[in-house]
Amino acid sequence: MKSKWLSFPYLVWMLIFIFIPLLLVLYFSLTIRTPDGLVFSFDNFRRFFEPIYLKVFLRSVYLALISTVICLALGYPMAMILAGNNFKRKNVMVFLFVVPMWMNFLLRTYAWMTLLERQGLLNTFLTFLGLPPLNLLYTQEAVVLGMVYNFLPFMVLPIYSVLRKIDRQLIEAAADLGADQMTIFRRVIFPLSLPGVMSGITMVFMPAVTTFVISRLLGGGQFTLIGNLIEQQFLFVGDWHFGSAISMVMMVIILLSMGVLSRYDKEHEGGGLW
C-alpha cells in the first residue's frame, strides 16, 4: 500500500476534530463544578436516570421509531418502484427525490409551519370545503411528519441502490422454479435487500432521535426531545457537564444499536454510518 500516506491529512483531521473533542465531552461528562473547582463525579449520569429525563429519552426513541417505521413503509415500495425495470423515467424520479435535499433543511421545516398553521394552507382549504379547521401544528404528529418528510430520502436511497444491484437472474430462477410474486419477494428480494434496509433504518433513526430543530419548530417547544435537552443545557443553562453526559449516553446507545444493525449490513451497502 504505497498510497497510505495520502490518508494522513484525514487522520490528523480526525484527531483534531473528532477524537479530541470526544475526549473533552467525556471529561466534561465525568466532572461537576463545585466551589473548589472541577471534581470527578458520576452525578451527571445519575441525574440522567431521573424519571423526568428518562421520560424525555423514551419520548425521543418513541417518536424516532415511529418515524423510522413510517419511512420504511413509505420508502421500501418507493425504492422498489424506482429500481423496477419497467419504470421508464427512473432518473427523473431519483432526481426528484434528491432535489429537495438541495434546499436548506430549516427552510423546508419552516415551510411546513406555514402549511400546518391554523390560518395555513391546509386549514384554509378545509374551511373552504366547509370542514372545521384542525389543530395540526405544534402537535406530536407534526413532529413525526417533520421527521418523516426530512429523512425519507435517507431510507429510499440506500434501499434503492441495493435493490438495483440484485441479480435479475436470481429472480428469474426463482420464477422458473415455480415461486409466485409474493414468494419471490419474501424469499429472494427482501432478504437480499436487508443491508440497504438496515442502513436506511440507521440513517433515519439516528438523525430523528437526536433532532432538536424539528421538535422546536413543529412541536412549539412542548415536546422536549433529547436533542432539545442537550441544546438547553449548553445554550441556556450553561451546564456543559450534564449536557455532555446526555450526549455520552446517546452516543453509547447509538453505537450499540449500530453494532446490532451492522451484523446485517455485511456488504456495507448504501454508505452505512455517515
Partner: peptide, 21 residues
C-alpha cells in the same frame, strides 16, 4: 398549564399573533 399552551415561542410570537394563530 402545559396542556392548554399552543406553543412556547420567542420572536415568532409576533407573526403568530398578528396572523390570528
Amino acid at each position: 398549564q402545559k396542556p392548554l399552551v399552543l406553543a412556547y415561542v420567542g420572536d415568532d410570537v409576533k407573526d403568530k399573533m398578528i396572523a390570528g394563530e
